[in-house]
Simulated scan of single mutants.
Amino acid sequence: MALFGDAPFATPKPERLVKRVLEIASDPGDLVLDSFAGSGTTGAVAHKMGRRWIMVEHGAHCHSHIVPRMRRVVDGSDAGGVSGELCWQGGGGFQLFELGPSLLEKDAHGRHVVSSRLASAELVEAVCRQFGFTPEPQGRDPWRHGSSSERQFIHVAPRMLFREDLLPLSEALDPDATLLVACLAHDTDAGNFPNLDIRKIPRDLPDAIDWAKDDYSLALALT
Score class of each variant (00 low, 15 high):
199 R>C: 10
55 M>P: 00
112 H>C: 08
71 R>G: 13
109 H>C: 07
68 P>Q: 05
181 V>F: 03
155 H>L: 04
46 A>H: 09
123 L>W: 12
28 P>L: 02
63 H>W: 15
90 G>L: 13
69 R>I: 06
181 V>K: 00
191 G>N: 01
2 A>W: 09
108 A>G: 12
27 D>S: 15
212 A>Q: 15
51 R>V: 00
137 P>V: 10
75 D>N: 13
35 S>I: 07
148 S>R: 15
146 G>L: 03
66 I>D: 08
35 S>D: 04
86 L>D: 04
92 G>M: 13
106 K>H: 05
150 E>H: 13
60 A>E: 13
167 L>W: 04
159 R>P: 10
193 F>W: 08
194 P>R: 00
171 E>H: 05
211 W>T: 06
85 E>G: 09
202 P>V: 07
119 A>S: 05
88 W>N: 09
27 D>C: 15
63 H>P: 01
202 P>Y: 13
206 P>C: 05
201 I>K: 03
58 H>W: 11
138 Q>S: 08
116 S>W: 02
41 T>D: 02
190 A>I: 03
149 S>H: 03
107 D>I: 08
129 R>V: 13
130 Q>G: 04
7 A>E: 14
77 S>E: 03
166 L>W: 07
156 V>N: 08
112 H>A: 07
217 S>Q: 06
29 G>T: 01
84 G>H: 11
151 R>I: 12
164 E>T: 06
52 R>Y: 05
44 A>D: 08
106 K>Y: 12
169 L>Y: 03
83 S>M: 06
64 S>Y: 14
159 R>D: 13
60 A>K: 15
43 G>E: 03
187 D>W: 01
201 I>S: 04
66 I>L: 07
117 R>P: 02
205 L>F: 00
190 A>N: 02
106 K>C: 10
198 I>T: 00
164 E>Q: 06
37 A>R: 02
178 T>R: 05
93 G>D: 14
161 L>P: 00
176 D>L: 11
10 A>W: 14
3 L>D: 02
